[in-house]
Amino acid sequence: MEFCPTCGMLLKYELPHFHLPARFFCPTCPYVSQIEQKVKIKRKQRLVKKEIDPIITQDDMKNAPKTDQAHCPDCGHNKASYIQFQTRSADEPMTINFTCEKCGKCWRED
């Protein structure tokens, strides 16, 4: 936000029009401030994405308890490993992550 040095009013922004550059102007007095293009990018910094470690690893699922009550949505096999954890507030049910023993498909039930 820019303020008028003469009267203290909040300056308004005027878009560039044809050959006129963008500028700030005071709505109450004749003050006008031209906007200069002083910002120059000297170099670009490449962002490096960090590798995300999985919350549930393959070793966790190998050591997890197994059930024969979960049906895989891909292959229809009824044996799966599962892990339960609380993702919402304490009065909500736990989230269960399943991994099919046959095809390795992962799915969850809330």
Rank of each mutant, 00 (worst) to 15 (best):
C103K: 07
C29A: 07
C4E: 01
C72Q: 10
F25Q: 01
E101W: 02
C100N: 09
M9Q: 09
I83Q: 03
G104L: 06
F98Q: 02
D91N: 13
K50Q: 12
S33Q: 14
T99H: 03
C75I: 10
H19N: 11
C29Y: 05
N78L: 05
N78S: 13
T6C: 05
F25A: 01
A90D: 15
Y13D: 01
D59Y: 04
M9V: 00
T6D: 13
C75H: 08
K40Q: 15
K38F: 10
K38S: 10
Q84S: 15
K50W: 02
I96Q: 04
M61W: 06
G8R: 05
M94Y: 03
D91A: 11
E2P: 01
A64V: 06
I55D: 10
V39W: 05
M61Y: 04
R23T: 02
K12Y: 01
H77F: 15
K38Q: 08
F85K: 11
G8K: 05
C103F: 09
C4R: 00
S33H: 11
E51L: 08
P21V: 03
K44D: 02
P5V: 01
K62A: 11
M61Q: 09
L20N: 14
F24L: 15
E51M: 03
Q58N: 12
N78E: 11
D74E: 13
G76H: 11
P16H: 06
I55R: 10
P30C: 02
Q37N: 14
I52F: 09
D53I: 03
K40W: 03
A70L: 05
T28N: 15
C75M: 08
E2L: 03
P73K: 09
P27M: 05
K12W: 00
E101C: 09
E109D: 14
E51K: 12
M61A: 09
Q34R: 10
P27C: 07
R43T: 14
G76V: 04
C29G: 04
H17N: 08
G8E: 08
D68A: 14
N63C: 03
G104F: 07
P93L: 10
V32R: 07
D110K: 10
C29P: 07
R23D: 01
D53L: 12
I35T: 05
T6Q: 14
K49L: 13
A64D: 08
F25M: 00
K12R: 12
